[in-house]
Write a protein that binds this DNA or RNA. Structure first.
Lengths: 226, 226
DNA sequence: GCAAATATAATAGTAATACTATCATTTATG
DNA sequence: CATAAATGATAGTATTACTATTATATTTGC
């Protein structure tokens, strides 16, 4: 159990920072404040200058922690992915029925966690919102291959792999488990964006989590054996 | 039939340009060259300055046609959406079986068209690649609500609506047709990006269009009545 | 408690970006 | 051929995404 815990100590890939932001008070101010500020401005309008003003510091100081705003966003997204993997492991650990485990996994991947009862820390919910609205912009770039080589996507891949394993228990013949999981993760983020801004592309209903229900229905139907 | 054709004369929403690029030779050089250049550099590294050099013109001249590079990209994406709607209407027009019509629609939405036999013009294929890799970056921004009000998404919504109608013929009780279609459109683009750069998230197989097959399988299973 | 190391702040500077403005020149049109 | 319209050439601004330098705090090791 020891190696298990050490794996889940929320430790973001060190290629994403120049200096560990958790190692100092300024570092913590940088990451905590950037979550709000990116959310507020949108990543395009977010700058280190604006962040520096918010935390009463300077651009130069922030650059000692992160080499670019893209890396900072990747850091935050990785932090979120670490939260998700943690929950995925612990919340499915003692469920023996693979279908119940998959239900739990779909919930974790597609819903916005309840801050009080589900989130493992105070930033999981705001991080989820960041990942939802901004992550795809730093993923779908020309730099993706270089970043992949640095290991930026290892946690993400590990999450997909874990859920794929559950799917294989339920229907080992299903030919597209990886695509099903990755399209669920990214698709649910996008559907929530659409719900908020382009509801005509969705089947929005007040007071119901249509996104989670949509994917719950979809995944189980797709895995049905004929 | 006349009003039909006039609807499909590839006419991109006029809120997207200051001066119609199809009205002059320079305008056409701008849009044709920008397709290649955005694809080559990625939208983040694409600038009007670089485009101006490529077409032997100036930044100022390009700004007479498009108020920003975002609007230019939206213009190109809308152009692509117009191609897709055109094909969607004409290629399904005389198919009576709704399942065969849906098969065709999924093909049009999820595949990369064959330049010789399928594309309706010389830019559909490069436009598809642009839409695939870059569209989400201008869609998921803080400006989306303003752009939506200007009608930038009307063709996109119309495409979704057309496919939703087919789905309703096949299974009128299915509760999430809009989400199914919009997740298919965006998801297939992303899955193709993953295939190329993060194949571990997919079920890539040499020589097969796994993306189209994945969605073909998925949509029909999801629409099955119990 | 003090020196040395380290972290941060303050400031300055650069090249590129995303524009706007002005004016001269070319090209199309009536 | 005159006039308008389109384009080119040039310049300029504010912002961005950094890098570099030096001064001032703050921490730590002895």
């Amino acid at each position: 159990m020891k190696s298990f815990f050490s794996h889940f100590k929320i430790q973001v890939n060190s290629s994403l920072y120049l200096k560990d932001p958790h190692s100092s008070e300024l570092g913590e101010r940088i990451i905590y404040k950037s979550i709000n500020l990116i959310d507020e401005l949108g990543f395009e309008h977010f700058t280190f200058k604006k962040l520096a003003i918010e935390i009463n510091s300077t651009e130069a100081s922030i650059y000692r922690y992160f080499e670019s705003k893209q890396k900072l966003l990747f850091y935050l997204i990785n932090w979120y992915w670490c939260c998700v993997e943690y929950r995925l492991v612990f919340e499915t650990a003692n469920i023996s029925d693979p279908r119940a485990r998959l239900t739990k996994a779909i919930h974790i991947l597609s819903s916005i966690p309840d801050g009080d009862s589900e989130a493992i820390n105070s930033v999981e919910v705001p991080l989820k919102k960041l990942a939802m609205n901004e992550s795809i912009k730093v993923m779908m770039t020309k730099e993706v291959d270089a970043e992949n080589k640095e290991g930026v996507f290892s946690v993400y891949k590990s999450i997909v792999k874990r859920v794929v394993e559950i799917i294989k228990e339920i229907n080992p013949k299903y030919p597209y488990p990886n695509m099903l999981v990755s399209s669920l993760i990214e698709g649910s983020n996008q559907q929530r964006f659409f719900e908020a801004h382009l509801p005509g592309l969705t089947n929005f209903k007040e007071g119901q989590d249509q996104v989670e229900q949509f994917y719950m229905d979809l995944v189980f139907k797709v895995l049905m054996n004929e």
